[in-house]
Simulated scan of single mutants.
Amino acid sequence: MSNGSAGRVTRTTSWRSRRAGTERADGGTLRTTLRAADGVPVDALYEPGPQGVEGPAIVLAHGFTGDLERPHVRRAAAVLARYASVVTFTFRGHGKSGGTSTVGDREVLDLTAAVSWARGLGHARVVTVGFSMGGSVVLRHAALHRAEAAAEPGEGRTDAYADAVVAVSAPARWYYRGTAPMRRLHWLVTRRSGRVVGRHVLRTRIHPREWDPVPLSPVEAVPLIAPTPLLIVHGDRDPYFPLDHPRMLADAAGGSAELWLEPGMGHAENAAGEELLVRIAGWATRFSTGCSGRDAEHGY
Rank of each mutant, 00 (worst) to 15 (best):
G134H: 00
A124C: 11
R119K: 14
R146S: 06
V138M: 04
H123W: 10
L109F: 15
L109K: 14
L139K: 10
V129S: 06
A118L: 08
V126M: 04
A150K: 14
H141R: 09
H141T: 04
H123P: 11
G122H: 13
V127M: 06
A118Q: 09
G122V: 06
G134T: 04
R140D: 00
V108M: 14
G122Y: 12
T128H: 03
V138T: 12
S132G: 14
G135C: 04
R125S: 12
L144H: 01
T112M: 14
L109G: 14
E107Y: 11
A143Q: 02
G130F: 00
V129Q: 09
G120F: 12
G130K: 02
A151I: 02
A114I: 14
V138N: 01
A113K: 08
V138F: 03
A143W: 01
R125K: 15
R119Y: 14
A113Y: 06
T112S: 15
A113F: 08
T112A: 15
L121W: 07
D110P: 12
R119D: 00
L109Y: 15
E107N: 06
A151M: 06
A143N: 03
G130E: 02
F131Q: 05
A114W: 00
V115A: 12
L111Y: 08
A147M: 09
R119I: 08
A118S: 12
A114H: 08
W117H: 09
A147N: 10
A151D: 09
R119G: 03
L109V: 13
T112K: 03
L139C: 03
A143L: 03
A118C: 11
A142Q: 05
R125P: 04
V126N: 05
R119A: 00
A114C: 14
L111K: 10
A151H: 07
S132A: 14
G120S: 08
A114P: 07
S116N: 12
H145K: 11
R140V: 02
G122F: 08
V115H: 12
R125W: 05
R140F: 01
S116M: 15
A142V: 00
A149W: 12
G135Y: 00
E107A: 05
D110H: 11
E148W: 09
A151T: 09
L144E: 01
D110L: 13
S116Q: 15
W117Q: 06
L121D: 01
T128D: 01
A114R: 03
S132H: 07
A149K: 11
E107D: 15
V108R: 04
V129Y: 11
A151F: 00
E148T: 10
V127E: 05
L139S: 04
R146P: 08
H141V: 02
S116F: 07
A118T: 13
V127K: 05
V127W: 00
A143M: 01
L139I: 00
V138H: 04
S116E: 15
S116C: 11
S136Y: 02
E148L: 06
T112G: 15
S136K: 06
V137F: 00
A118V: 09
R140Y: 00
G130C: 02
V127T: 15
V108E: 03
H141N: 07
G120E: 11
A149I: 05
L109N: 15
A113E: 06
G134P: 03
V115Y: 09
D110G: 15
V137T: 01
A114D: 10
L111I: 13
